[in-house]
Design a binder for these strands. Structure first.
Lengths: 243, 243
DNA sequence: GATTTTGTTTCATCTGATGAAACTTAGTTT
DNA sequence: AAACTAAGTTTCATCAGATGAAACAAAATC
């Protein structure tokens, strides 16, 4: 539990405050100080700094805070040439039109995965997929892909849910590596199934997982096996586009 | 000069570090410590906090830092329903195809303006317009629009460049309010001309400025007067889309 | 192998971050 | 209108913890 080596407390607190805004887009001083459980005045000063630098702005009327324009600047810089999120969008739309289900792109960040891009299916009942969401790396088709094809992951680092049998899981990973794709049905979310394939860069490293997800009623095992070649092919195309 | 009231030093320094990444996308510890002129070890600790919270990631090979995935999360939340940046994109593309020049969208942030969205012209010689860039509110067509139609701006707050005659400027603003658009030729940038119109929300407040910019050779005064109705019409459409 | 550069850790010093409490609005209730 | 409540703001004494210098380690370069 000794993670706090050589870091700056105040900064971490300020960043925690910023992260509150991933859940609600508008927060008041008191709300924030509750959420991060810090003294009102401490939060007040941190907010003043964040606002002063343009990371937060506060509504003149309600006095509530929201994310500021400086984040535009940064997020604009986040979008790089080799950024899968925009680079792969056309390909994602192509496969979406082909399959009709929601397509997501996940990258691994430590022991989590993040949906960095998504195009929603065109059917009435479809998986909605907000961008930027974090999920555990322990469950879901994309997780399995990201884990299976990354060398540098130590399975012991995870906090495994009880439903997962480590022994079986390791075998499953092996099969995924052989097959080149992973599936899941109602692992993380009731009623949802998914199939995912790894996207490799030139050097053979996984950069992200391409994932097709939809209701279990439509994405049956048979259906997933049917579209598996499509998904893997699409992931391969993406790999060629990437730097 | 007493701006530092009730703020947290360490946090401001950390945010300054983050802002370094608007200029270069990859920076080393030493580079950063030079840029913010702080001691190596101080920067080291701040970086550790920023990295720990996922705002920065460091390349395993080069040890250099770049923006982290947490910013995805935040910037995803920055995109709100009433966000002009994506909402207006289709309309911006429409007018771009009509006029053929680069279209930008600027919002005011304090005494500056920020390009929050842009679609580039389709001609060989065209204005390139990176998103997220900040510019002074004192020069340029968009600035004049944003100033002319915001009540709450005190002209005395600005640091005016010597080239601007305050007396004349005030008269100019009046004419802009009457005409409903502003133009500029080589005010901020050699060889570039622009015409801008305000986008109002339902309540009659300016939310941003729509700007057409291109080389002075093509965007002559005559040409700008010719397209002025188009630009104003487009800005009006945007206003109707906005909340 | 010597030298330089860059990242990491230690440490004594004292800045400046902190929570409690007082103060100030502003909004609500009686 | 006064009393009350809830929200933001400021003050202040205390001491946690942020700081720069310097030592150390590890690469990279000569």
């Amino acid at each position: 539990m000794e993670e706090n080596k050589h870091t700056v407390r105040a900064v971490e607190r300020a960043l925690d405050i910023l992260l509150c805004f991933t859940e609600s887009k508008e927060l008041s001083l008191t709300e924030i100080s509750h959420q991060v459980s810090l003294n009102k005045s401490t939060v007040y000063r941190l907010l003043a700094s964040l606002e002063g630098k343009g990371f937060l702005i506060r509504d003149k009327m309600t006095d509530k805070y929201r994310l500021g324009f400086r984040l535009w600047e940064l997020s604009a810089n986040l979008v790089r040439d080799d950024d899968p999120a925009i680079l792969f969008l056309p390909e994602m739309e192509r496969i979406r039109d082909l399959i009709g289900e929601t397509i997501s792109l996940y990258v691994r960040d430590g022991l989590e995965r993040i949906r960095i891009q998504a195009v929603e299916g065109n059917q009435a009942i479809r998986r909605v997929a907000p961008i930027g969401v974090r999920m555990p790396l322990t469950v879901g088709a994309s997780s399995k892909v990201l884990v299976a094809f990354s060398e540098e992951i130590d399975l012991n680092d995870f906090k495994w849910p009880e439903t997962v049998d480590q022994q079986k899981y390791t075998e499953q990973l092996k099969r995924i590596r052989e097959a080149g794709f992973a599936t899941s049905a109602e692992e993380r979310e009731q009623g949802t199934a998914a199939i995912a394939a790894p996207v490799f860069n030139r050097h053979g490293k996984v950069i992200c997982a391409l994932c097709v997800s939809g209701p279990v009623s439509r994405l049956t095992i048979d259906k997933m096996l049917e579209i598996a070649p499509l998904v893997m092919d699409s992931a391969k195309r993406m790999g060629r586009i990437a730097r």
